[in-house]
Design a protein around this nucleic acid. Sequence first.
DNA 1: ACGATAGCCGTATGGACATATGGTTTTCGC
DNA 2: GCGAAAACCATATGTCCATACGGCTATCGT
Lengths: 213, 213
Amino acid sequence: MPRTADHDARRAQIAAAVVRLVAGDGLDAATVARVAAEAGVSVGLVQHYFPAKDDMLLFAYERVMTDAGSRVAQRIAEGEARQGTINGVVLDSLMELLPVDEARRAEYRVARAFHGRALDNAALTEVARRWAEDIRRRLSVAVQNGTECGEVDPETDAELAAVRMVALVGGLAEQVYRDADRPVGARTMAAAAERILRDCLDDVFAGECRHYM
Amino acid sequence: MPRTADHDARRAQIAAAVVRLVAGDGLDAATVARVAAEAGVSVGLVQHYFPAKDDMLLFAYERVMTDAGSRVAQRIAEGEARQGTINGVVLDSLMELLPVDEARRAEYRVARAFHGRALDNAALTEVARRWAEDIRRRLSVAVQNGTECGEVDPETDAELAAVRMVALVGGLAEQVYRDADRPVGARTMAAAAERILRDCLDDVFAGECRHYM
DNA sequence: ACGATAGCCGTATGGACATATGGTTTTCGC
DNA sequence: GCGAAAACCATATGTCCATACGGCTATCGT
């Protein structure tokens, strides 16, 4: 057998370089040559691991969205561990998606940049679609659990509520990102977003039952 | 004086070509050469009216957003004319922004494509910011009017409600666009979005007073 | 009617890019 | 230790692009 290398690690290394470049200077900055330089490897190596540039971008996008999903899953696990209300767990999960610090703002920039390109790239669109579907499903299950334990009004349509929550958090993220420094009354935009999100969740999870997901 | 031409008409003609190309094949398709061909003019003429490509894109983006704003304003004017409730007028205005038919889907594609590039272009960001600010202001005024005439609970924070409505309609637009064919329970995504929007507005405009904006 | 000037065009130019290609180095089974 | 194959690199290639540039052409004041 010949020389070996950690395929996954190399791909991750290159994807991380892509993400840094996109976060810093947009998708157009992620040229193959610059990605190679940022990752500290040669152009040829990037080609070795990603035959076409689109493969590289798709992989990087998948990685970013997977990471974001993992953070949400982690928040859910934490909520379960401390036996919080479903309302609280969902709030923590969704707050995780608001670009309130520089790390999350960077992630938001990357996600949005790819999302823009997804408009004319079916593979990227599919990643975005799956991600949205995944989070909607999680939220829908949370609402159904709430229905069963009394935290949610039994009349509530779980899927509809999930669409509503995803829409709200996505729209709030956009405003928090763009207008972070614009006050909303006496609040910062981030504080306003949190308040709006809390109100929405208090509306869905109006019951009293204490339960974990 | 030498030969004259309708400056504004020419710029509009070129901008329309940009919009068609972006709607069809994304921002990268809007090269100067292709825009010229699509508009039926020479490359040199495009340069004559837009010294740099960025000027051209900025102008096209401004035009798209202005058009969208005008449609909203028109819906408001129609609502005033028929003396509808504020709730109804706001609903019509916001429904106008959902990508429910091919024309609006095309507009949504264009807006989103530019929005993505705005992440690393200050001039484009400023357009997006002003547009959001404008619609938030309109909504905030509508809520305040509602407060004065009894259609809105006096405790309601108008600016917060405006942020909430903008967030909701933006997030719903994204899901309607991407998941138009995905059913939400027994509804289409578009029907689900309308229902969610109605519920939100019925929550804000809970009072009974019949009034026009 | 005529020249000045804006309108308009075609092509040239130089740079950046994705990808192709040929070669060098390392490692592992034998 | 040695050969084979993967890992890795440097550079070549051809395309596409934004912009520069020089030259026609139509029109308006005179």
